[in-house]
Computed example of a mutant assay.
Amino acid sequence: MTDSTDLPAPLAEIRDSFLELGERDRLQLLLEFAGELPELPERYAASPALLEKVEECQSPVRAFAEVEADGVHFYATAPREAPTTRGFASILAQGLTGLTPQQVLAVPDDFAMTLGLTRAVSPLRLNGMTGMLTRAKRQIRTQLHPA
């Protein structure tokens, strides 16, 4: 398991918030995150095809990590009818945005498994969050080192 000292502060705070709660309350916190998924910027809202489809997600999820002068911005869209997936997208949007590309690339791939949700959420849903993170890292690498 990932130690919170290995994580950038925003992700460590999110992780610790989950682990401070009992199992039942963790799912509730995930649902609260679902309600906090940031809206897409207009350029993505008008052209959702600019976001990459996350195949690992059972729900139609699209995401993109953008490297800007002020750090990484992670954008995602997930249907309201898929609150756990939407919650995971929101965790990444809130936890990755503002980090340096190097900080995002250093986030352990098993981050989803460190939230204490393995008994509350199906492995397929956790794989979806891992898929979002994996894509974000690949997108960042591509922007840092274009072919």
Rank of each mutant, 00 (worst) to 15 (best):
D110N: 03
M129L: 13
L29Y: 10
L29T: 05
V61T: 05
P38G: 00
L19S: 06
G98C: 15
S17L: 06
E56Y: 14
L30P: 01
T85D: 01
V67T: 04
L124M: 10
L51F: 06
D3P: 12
L50G: 07
Y44Q: 04
E39N: 04
N127E: 15
T2H: 11
A76V: 03
A120C: 06
P79S: 05
V104H: 10
R26K: 09
L7P: 10
R86D: 00
A9D: 07
P123N: 13
P101L: 09
P146G: 03
T2I: 12
P83M: 00
E42T: 13
L133Y: 10
R62Q: 05
A147Q: 10
G87T: 00
D16K: 04
A120Q: 07
R43K: 15
R86W: 04
T130R: 14
S17R: 08
M113A: 09
E32N: 11
G35T: 08
S4K: 06
E52Y: 14
G128P: 15
L30N: 00
V107H: 03
L27S: 09
A9Q: 13
A78Q: 02
A136N: 05
G116M: 13
M1D: 09
T5F: 05
P41S: 01
A76P: 03
S90V: 01
P146E: 05
E39R: 06
E56V: 07
M113L: 09
G128Y: 04
K53W: 11
A46P: 04
G131I: 15
V72I: 05
L21D: 15
E23T: 15
L40R: 00
P38E: 02
Q94L: 04
F64C: 08
A89R: 01
S90W: 02
E52H: 10
G95M: 12
T130P: 03
D6P: 08
E20P: 06
L133G: 13
A89I: 04
N127A: 12
A82R: 00
V107K: 01
A46Y: 07
L11N: 14
A82N: 02
E36S: 13
R62S: 11
G35F: 03
L144S: 14
A78T: 04
Q28M: 09
P83G: 01
E39A: 07
Q103L: 05
P8V: 12
T85G: 00
T5L: 12
A46W: 03
Q103M: 08
V72H: 00
V54C: 13
I14C: 02
V61Q: 04
D25H: 04
A63K: 14
L40N: 00
A12C: 07
A112V: 15
E56K: 07
A78H: 01
